[in-house]
Design a protein around this nucleic acid. Structure first.
Lengths: 194, 194, 194, 194
DNA sequence: GATGAATGAGCGTTCATTCAT
DNA sequence: CATGAATGAACGCTCATTCAT
């Protein structure tokens, strides 16, 4: 289905080269149609972009939602570690989507600037909640030292932020995993020791 | 001096709207000259961009260099904390430069893609070195627990990476400082406890 | 019947916005079909236009023909006045058709330029004939002063031309009727006095 | 000067083929430049059109103004007749301008529809005034029969309206002049006889 | 009959760049 | 140094038209 292919190619190219750096003609060419064919499915370049953006947000929210819903049969440590791993898996499963989302978050196209914050807010909240839950539980069952939850959450979020940058910065998976493990190890040390 | 103003405005606009999203005419207009005047100083748009980029790299390197050279009269904890604070100060002193650098690093313009890694390498190395020095010293004088240096360094770098993203993501300085302090506190806990 | 609705909407839109200013998609949308459906009935945009044009000409000719055929039981004055009134009625009954016709006459679409004169010729002749008949009769029965017929006809035609412009220029019917009456009164004065 | 040539060619082509029927590329080609050169002088197609329109209005107003100012040394009859002749001269001197103006008046481009009435209002008023003056004077000095001024003015305006249509409809000057003379003769008959 | 998909041609517009002044 | 004029290339978009279904 052309419409879908267009959206996917668009997401990849917009993620790689930005909104202004991507010509509709490129998108069309990769899909194997001529440029005006795009207008049979999308009202404008902006519409195509926004459709891709909405999908990316939905995918991201769905992923975060899954994270929240996951059965908590694991130990606190494993449960937190699992968040990082799942995030990494998510990046690997659809790196284009994530590159597109990260770009939209940090350097939104001009027409997106006003909507962007709200768009990411929901995901942000859900992720924060998921982490908080695990941490509160960890404190309760004694696997984490009793510290202000905010501190534990903030620094874990910082962990994920740093990793998301590094994922796109470092091309080697090996290196990335080393960073992930090292960073988590340190976090865990700080979190459970006195 | 027109030449300088051009470079500065270019850096800001390239940082805000990207290479493709910034027209030479905008840059010229902000400086108060007509577009062709740019060509009296720069051979092309790419040249203007690269000049700005080189300056950003130099400034960043200089900053990192300063960090390395700083007299180590402080305790290890204060010394590491100071890195974060200095980084934050640097962001605040020239946010445009940093936005421009971050954008160039994560989403380089097409013609930069091949040079980009090398460009950031030096700074990266220097920063790593600066951190490493402090950490090794910290281990030696017993203020840090004896752990693989790589782990301590990786996770500290992850700290700075996360913070740099958050600086541009969160607009409130207060919130940012809370995140910084919380994240550092946790890091330090993990680093010096057993 | 779709075919007919298409022609009617086309006539209105071509009259309002001209040939180039009217997209087939607009016509289709107003009729409630998709653009390609037009091609089931008309070979091309030009064909649709020409069909509408032919109909307009036929309607105009029919109207003029009726005028000619009208039983001459009225006085000369009433008979001439009646022409103006009938014309006005015709405008009111199908203003779209008349707007379309006037536009085609004064500013024909490029492909019509060569046919246009001939198309209006017949109507012109018939109208001239109708007027002439009444005037000749008026002279014969003494209700009009004996003057060159050409002069009486030319100036009456000028009357109708001026009124047709004014009908589309002035939006108020009241104002238009005042102009009509005043202009006719003066004409009649000139025509029957010495 | 390119800017001026552009405006003149634009006025002619817009008058001949309408706003939508005229491509900027045609205008540019006739002037001997490439299309984008237009944008060095005019902000958009609409701007070019409006500039031409404003000039046409000014020329028309100037012409009407001259008419008003003309010394009234002539007899009433000659004075009124002169208006028609001057109008004809004006058409002949710049037929493109007049065709453009007439088209704009009767079939304004969509973006002009709201401004158009006001734009022609001033000229309209001035012309009406010029005619009124002559007619009032004619009544006062007895060369015109004492009749409602409105009637005399309305019907004279109808005369000019009809003639302006006929000027563009009939291509032959001879025919046009015959119509003009005949129509005026009748008008005058009606105006001065009882 | 009618539609969805697709296209070729063309349009208005922007932009980096050149060049004479 | 700086500008006005101009251009080639490209872009987003519209539209009449075709064709398989």
């Amino acid at each position: 289905m052309t419409k879908n292919k267009l959206k996917e190619v668009a997401m990849r190219l917009f993620g790689e080269k930005g909104y202004d750096g991507t010509a509709l003609s490129e998108i069309a060419k990769e899909v194997g149609v001529k440029t005006p064919a795009i207008y049979a499915f999308y009202a404008s370049k902006e519409d195509l972009f926004m459709t891709a953006f909405r999908e990316a947000m939905e995918a991201y929210n769905a992923f975060t939602h899954e994270l929240t819903e996951e059965k908590q049969e694991l130990s606190t440590r494993e449960s937190l570690y699992r968040i990082l791993v799942r995030q990494c898996e998510f990046y690997e499963k659809s790196p284009e989507l994530n590159r597109f989302a990260l770009r939209s978050l940090l350097f939104p196209a001009s027409f997106l600037k006003e909507t962007i914050e709200q768009a990411f807010l929901e995901s942000d909240k859900m992720l924060t909640k998921a982490i908080e839950d695990r941490i509160v539980q960890g404190i309760e069952n004694g696997s984490l030292k009793d510290r202000p939850v905010e501190m534990l959450v903030d620094s874990f979020l910082n962990l994920t932020d740093g990793l998301s940058m590094e994922y796109f910065y470092y091309s080697s998976k090996e290196l990335y995993m080393r960073k992930l493990n090292n960073a988590f190890e340190m976090y865990w040390n700080g979190a459970c020791s006195s």
